[in-house]
Design a protein around this nucleic acid. Structure first.
Lengths: 253, 253
DNA sequence: GACTAAAGTTTCATGGGATGGAAGTTTCTG
DNA sequence: CAGAAACTTCCATCCCATGAAACTTTAGTC
């Protein structure tokens, strides 16, 4: 009866809307005004206002003096109990710290999440080069050191499924030919580590190794370095030690 | 007008329930079955099932093969964009790593949140002693090194408000007398660091210093050590350097 | 492997809470 | 200090969340 019925998959359901609102907060939007949220979610202002208000009351969002909303401490606190933080991050952090001290380079820890590399942690210093990866961020599997490792140790089927989709090519050096990637991944499995050279960012490369548990690759550690500092042998051995140490720590708990 | 309108605190509202469900995940409950969630929230099973299902579909929760729910990667990802993670943690991590390497002790970073010390990060190793504090956890202000610092640099009014409430006394050494605490806090302000001795845990003590920004104490860094390793002078100077370094990093961005 | 208790899932009639247009209020901006 | 943009409140309408009950699956026992 109502003439203007929103036809297709009505994105109704309060909860879904709330989750959509929270999902607006991403690397590019860490602080948003109500209007911006309404625009991003395409929700009516009044509805948006109400939901955001409830989320704020619950501590899931917090409003700054600049009238911008940010992710609240309550949500952050809950997230710290995700297995990701609880087991992996917590176990790996001391080792990552050592790795960072030893190499002075960008150190990253990632897991596989929805067909992408999810960066669980990273340590960056002044000495190290700027990177795109950031904790909580996703990057493609085939253009990053940690990503290649994570992909290489997947099942044949999963790998083919990944290769079947269109692959982004952020730099001219990015390898996007399925066949070339298959060879690359086979090398990773054979050597036990991956290398990338300018496949994600111009001027830098990376090396990564798997963290194995019960014969499965549960995560990957890697370093990102300036191309001319890519000292494979030294880095691989340091990384391998670190991976073993993290794996031991994981089992220890 | 509306005849039977129950005006008083109707504990309704889907969203609030959803937030309550998510809040069930705390240090003691990182994995919960549906039934457990229903019990904790006192919600009817069917209602709980529906909400949990929606949260799972949105990636806010994830169901393991053990049919237990855990905090999902989506929620975790969003939380990484909290100012806490984005600015503080990210800026402080390299310094904390160095601190950890230098001292080999438990290193913690905390902010003030709802009248408690919220641990933003901690680094623990095999060498260091076990502690209760964990990233994402809350502890009282008056029984922890970082807590005393955070409290000491609050306004007079806020301090008195804190002292006015009943103060938990986890160990016999915990200082809960308002007057004794006032003196203690004055010392912290005078010296620029705090010391605790067995006020939270038997056998261990802690030292902490403030991280200042624009004349305000925005966070505190501390170490937790075995009592007989509490080498005040050395630790204070190391911590002060670290705090300055973190503050600089915060401004740099 | 049958039996059973507990955990999880689906169903559905009902009414209470969500909805969003519109009007009112505050806060920027030039 | 206008004028606009951002934000907040209001409220009649109606849709969707509700939860008891029935049903299905899983885990534990002999």
């Amino acid at each position: 009866m109502s003439p203007a019925r929103v036809e297709s998959g009505a994105p109704t359901a309060l909860l879904e809307r709330a989750m959509e609102i929270l999902s607006c907060f991403d690397p590019k939007h860490s602080a948003l005004t109500l209007t911006q949220i309404a625009e991003l979610t395409k929700l009516p202002m009044s509805t948006c206002h109400r939901i955001v208000g409830t989320l704020e009351a619950g501590g899931f969002l917090s409003k700054g003096s600049d009238r911008k909303f940010r992710v609240g401490t309550k949500l952050w606190t809950i997230a710290q109990h995700a297995p990701l933080s609880e087991r992996l991050r917590e176990s790996a952090l001391p080792t990552l710290a050592r790795l960072y001290e030893e190499t002075g380079e960008n150190v990253t820890l990632a897991v596989l999440d929805r067909g992408q590399a999810l960066y669980v942690d990273r340590l960056v210093g002044e000495r190290s080069i700027p990177t795109i990866s950031r904790a909580g961020g996703h990057l493609p599997l085939h253009t990053t050191g940690v990503g290649k490792v994570l992909l290489a140790y997947q099942s044949e089927k999963a790998i083919e499924q990944y290769l079947a989709q269109p692959l982004p090519k952020p730099t001219p050096q990015s390898i996007t030919q399925p066949d070339a990637l298959r060879r690359d991944l086979a090398d990773v499995r054979k050597n036990g580590y991956s290398i990338t050279r300018q496949e994600m960012t111009r001027g830098s490369g990376s090396i990564a190794v798997p963290i194995m548990r019960n014969g499965r690759c549960v995560a990957a550690v890697g370093v990102i370095v300036h191309l001319n500092r890519l000292d494979t042998n030294r880095l691989v051995s340091t990384l391998t030690d670190a991976a073993a140490s993290i794996a031991a720590e994981l089992d220890g708990h």
